[in-house]
């Protein structure tokens, strides 16, 4: 059986022009290869600027990779075809606040992917929006709300609802827990784990919080300066880290735990 998602040698080169007189900065993501099975959770960890977000954007199709290919269920994904991709791979943005349009209601925001990608009638779409809102633990009434009326945790839930509404097979989340306070964070983590169990989603997320990573992920990808330093099962990486960088990360995490 082929894996749900397989990424083969995907690389990305980004050149930032710094005006006429400065040398342009260059960011290179060296070829990344990994596979993800259905129902599996993969965490991407690494320092800032190590290419985690770029990798996430490459997966959902927001950026075009320089080389390599991504296969979904053995089928190659085309880069200019967002429609093909967004039915199956959905993204939860890092800042849920900015990923919601302030000028329209949440119902309209959630309706948009349905309107663009499905042939459902308005009544069916309405039904689906309400159903998805309930799924993430909100009320159908919230569809008449605007962005600024919600708390951060609720916004995060809406962002997840938006990702879920098309029944995708994979969700890619860029630091979904970063801006949340501990209680809301645990709620969101539990919500995602429950959804994953119920729907069999593949879940890829970026996080700096090693506690959560250890708690929910099956596999880990460690990145540093555009390179994949290490990848493997969570247990293996936490107990027998191979590279120096991973070792340091794990040590600092354990030092923090033993202090408490």
């Amino acid at each position: 059986m082929s894996p749900l998602l397989s990424v083969e040698d995907v690389s990305f080169t980004h050149i930032v022009e710094n005006g006429w007189f400065q040398r342009p900065r260059k960011f290179v993501l060296s070829p990344v290869t990994f596979e993800l099975n259905a129902g599996e959770t993969m965490a991407i960890i690494g320092e800032n600027g190590s290419g985690k977000s770029i990798l996430a954007k490459l997966l959902v199709g927001a950026e075009t990779p320089t080389s390599g290919a991504i296969y979904l269920n053995g089928q190659k994904l085309k880069y200019n075809n967002i429609k093909q991709r967004c039915l199956n791979i959905r993204m939860v943005f890092q800042h849920s606040n900015e990923s919601l349009n302030p000028g329209i209601t949440l119902g309209t925001i959630l309706d948009e992917p349905l309107k663009l990608n499905t042939q459902l009638s308005p009544e069916e779409r309405q039904e689906k929006v309400e159903q998805t809102l309930r799924l993430v633990g909100m009320l159908p009434e919230h569809q008449y709300f605007y962005r600024h009326m919600l708390s951060d945790g609720q916004k995060q839930r809406i962002a997840i609802a938006r990702a879920l509404i098309l029944n995708p097979q994979i969700i890619v989340a860029d630091e979904p827990f970063a801006a949340l306070d501990p209680s809301v964070r645990s709620q969101t983590v539990n919500l995602i784990m429950k959804l994953q169990r119920d729907l069999g989603l593949g879940f890829i997320f970026i996080s700096h919080n090693l506690g959560i990573v250890r708690h929910i992920s099956d596999r880990i990808l460690v990145m540093q300066e555009g390179n994949v330093v290490e990848s493997g099962k969570t247990d293996v990486i936490f107990n027998w880290p191979k590279s120096e960088y991973t070792e340091k990360l794990v040590q600092s995490h354990q030092a923090m735990l033993s202090k408490n």
Binding site: I82, M91, E98, L100, N101, E112, P113
Partner: peptide, 12 residues
């Protein structure tokens, strides 16, 4: 802004 990117990923 992010929400335009989000809409674009919705296939807009």
């Amino acid at each position: 802004k992010d929400y335009v990117m989000a809409s674009r990923l919705d296939g807009a």
